[in-house]
Structures are given as structure tokens and as C-alpha cells.
């Protein structure tokens, strides 16, 4: 259903909580985001070294019980309270959905909230109040998309043709499907990424399987025997994107971004083909990586060398200069090693 009222996003004063998957696969992206929020946008972003995972993956693989997850989340809120902030900034999309699920549960079943307070006190001597607002990091970049565009050195435009690049987006399921009102634009046509893409000069392309899950499936990926589920669902998406010849895929969920990138490799090894015409694969960026790139941060400082689908084709289209020699350079003292070559994706 269409939402009638867009959710409000707090402009400043956030307590930041990190993502297990994002920091593992896109460590530079989280760092780049913090730099952008603090230096470029002059926002007050606080963090506590003592925050943990929200247990989202454990919860959705059904090994961590509801009561445990509720208490861990309550503890995160307690840390937020200690920092003096009442706005929560969430890096992971599963977490984002989960925080809202728990708060909604407490709203409908106040006895659960009461029990959680009791448990948290007994376990940690902590108390908590629920955040005034919860935003995903992509919400915040959407809010400031015009300011970021003004500060950007580059645009999602082909320097050769002058035309906007064709960009497809993928929104993590838990961003808007659980509570459509918590997603900018609702569950069917969220605008959180297409808005950012457009302000950066790109053309946001609709494709049939846009709302289809990337296939993470939680337990399906964790267990070797069912990883095919994950790959199959990403393949459905890639096949759907292919006829539109996109130059770029943007995803706001770290798991989705990782899968859209990695399964292109795996599928190319199995099928001997890629989903773009040039055989290079379709580069995938997270929203932070996109913003950082447009603002002129060195691609290898953002961490784009960690992607399996090479991003150089995109960098060339935009006219971003980069040093091929420094791509895999780690420290000045160590000789650079490079990853083995894939069969198809070069």
C-alpha cells in the first residue's frame, strides 16, 4: 500500500551502531561514512566502543531467542542514553528492521518491555529509554543528498557521452517490508537510493525484479548445502537487470551489496558469462561508497579493491582517476600481492 506520510529523519545528533557484515566486507565504507557525516556535513555522531551486534543474524537463524535479542537491544539503547543522544543511526538493514520489530513488540506487549528492563538490570545494572528516532545510514545520506551533491567532485555521468549513467538499486528487504512507514517512499517504491542516485546525476532505472529479495536467506547462506538458494535469488535479480544494461548497482544493505557483487563472480565461473555486455560484470557500490566516491575520496581508501567485480569500468566512465599500482598495496614495507584471477571476471 502507498504510505500517506513520509517518515521524519532527525537532522543531527546520532548514536551510531555498526554492522557485522558491513564492517567485515566493507570496512572502508563505514569509515568513509563517518568522515562524510562529521567532516562534510558537520554532524554530531557519537559511538561507544562497548556496543555489540544486535544479534540480528542469530535471531533470524533462530538460534538466539527473542528474550535474549530484546535484552541485547535494550543494552544498545542504554549505551545510546549514556552518550546523551536520543537518535539511533543504524548501519545494518537487518538491525534497522529488528530495532523497529522489538519496539513494536514492546508497544503491543508492554509486559515484554518490563521483563526486558528487569533482565537488563539484573545482568548489567543498566537502564534504558527507547530512542526518539531510528534512521538507517542511507536515510541520512538521502536527507543530505543535495548538500552532498553540491560538495561532490564527480557525477554519475559518462564523461564520454555526457549522458547520466544507468543505475539500478536494490533495497534490503528489512528496510521497508516489515514496516512500510519506516521506509522512505514505502515498501513498493522506496526512494532512499533512487533519490541519492538522481541527485548525483545518475538515471535511476526500474527493473521487474527490483523488489525481489537478494536471497541472503540467513540460514540459507550460513549453511553450505543451501547456498544455492542465495545464489539463485541473486541470479533472478541480475537476469532482470541485464536487459537495461546498467552501469552500476547500488544497495543499502551490506549483505545484499556483498551478494550482488560475489554471486556475479560465482555465476560467471559456473555459467561462463556475465550480466553485462562487456564481460566485466556490473560494479556494485554501497550508498556510503557511492557518496565517498563522488566526494573525491580515493577508491582504494574507500576499500573498493575488496569488491570481486572490478570497479575500474565505472571509474573510467565517470572520469575518476586511480592508481592501478596502488590498488592492492597494503603497507610501504611489504611487497604488494594481488588476488588470483577469476576465469571470466577480469
Amino acid at each position: 500500500m502507498a504510505i500517506t506520510k513520509q517518515k521524519e529523519i532527525a537532522k543531527d545528533n546520532y548514536f551510531f551502531v555498526r554492522s557485522c557484515i558491513r564492517q567485515t566486507f566493507f570496512p572502508g565504507a563505514e569509515q568513509a561514512l563517518i568522515n562524510i557525516l562529521k567532516s562534510n556535513l558537520k554532524l554530531n555522531i557519537l559511538e561507544d566502543v562497548n556496543h555489540t551486534s544486535c544479534t540480528g543474524i542469530g535471531f533470524h537463524t533462530d538460534i538466539v531467542p527473542l528474550e535474549t535479542t530484546m535484552a541485547v537491544i535494550a543494552r544498545q539503547f542504554s549505551l545510546m542514553n549514556q552518550s546523551g543522544c536520543s537518535n539511533l543511526l543504524v548501519s545494518c538493514v537487518t538491525s534497522f528492521g529488528l530495532y523497529h520489530e522489538i519496539i513494536d513488540l514492546w508497544h503491543h506487549h508492554p509486559e515484554l518491555e518490563a521483563k526486558t528492563r528487569e533482565v537488563l538490570w539484573t545482568a548489567t545494572r543498566r537502564e534504558f529509554t527507547i530512542p526518539t528516532s531510528i534512521a538507517h545510514t542511507s536515510d541520512l545520506l538521502y536527507l543530505y543528498r543535495n548538500e552532498l551533491a553540491l560538495q561532490s567532485l564527480y557525477q554519475l555521468v559518462s564523461i564520454k557521452t555526457g549522458k547520466p549513467l544507468k543505475v539500478v538499486d536494490h533495497i534490503g528487504c528489512h528496510y521497508a517490508k516489515i514496516f512500510p512507514k519506516q521506509g522512505l517512499g514505502g515498501s513498493e517504491f522506496p526512494v532512499v537510493l533512487s533519490g541519492l542516485i538522481t541527485s548525483m546525476g545518475g538515471e535511476s532505472i526500474d527493473y521487474p525484479e527490483r523488489r525481489h529479495c537478494c536471497g541472503f536467506g540467513f540460514r540459507h547462506y550460513v549453511l553450505k548445502e543451501s547456498r544455492g538458494y542465495s545464489m539463485t535469488n541473486t541470479k533472478i535479480k541480475l537476469e532482470s537487470m541485464a536487459p537495461y544494461n546498467p552501469d552500476l548497482i547500488i544497495a543499502n544493505c551490506p549483505g545484499c551489496a556483498m551478494f550482488l557483487d560475489r554471486w556475479q563472480y560465482t555465476l560467471s565461473e559456473i555459467e561462463g558469462k556475465t550480466y553485462d555486455k562487456q564481460g566485466l560484470g556490473i560494479p556494485v557500490l554501497t550508498h556510503e561508497e557511492l557518496a565517498a566516491l563522488m566526494l573525491g575520496i580515493n577508491p582504494w581508501d574507500i576499500g573498493l579493491q575488496m569488491h570481486q567485480v572490478p570497479v575500474e569500468s565505472l571509474l573510467n566512465k565517470i572520469g575518476i582517476s586511480y592508481s592501478p599500482v596502488n590498488k592492492y598495496k597494503l603497507t610501504d614495507s611489504k611487497p604488494t600481492t594481488i588476488p588470483k584471477k577469476a576465469s571470466i571476471l577480469q
Binding site: Q31, R262, Q305, M306, I338, A342
Partner: peptide, 29 residues
Amino acid sequence: ELGPVWEWTYENREDLYPRLGSPYKKETI
């Protein structure tokens, strides 16, 4: 399925993560 780039990441993680600004296994934000 994570590919050769992940293999390289894994082998070089102690240098790669700090290179990208991570405090890698230190108790710092």
C-alpha cells in the same frame, strides 16, 4: 563462492583492515 579477492583479503587481513582505517582487533572505536 566469495572469490579470489576474499581469499586475498583473508590472507592479508591484518594489514588490509588497518589500511582502510579499521582499528582491527584493538579496543578502539
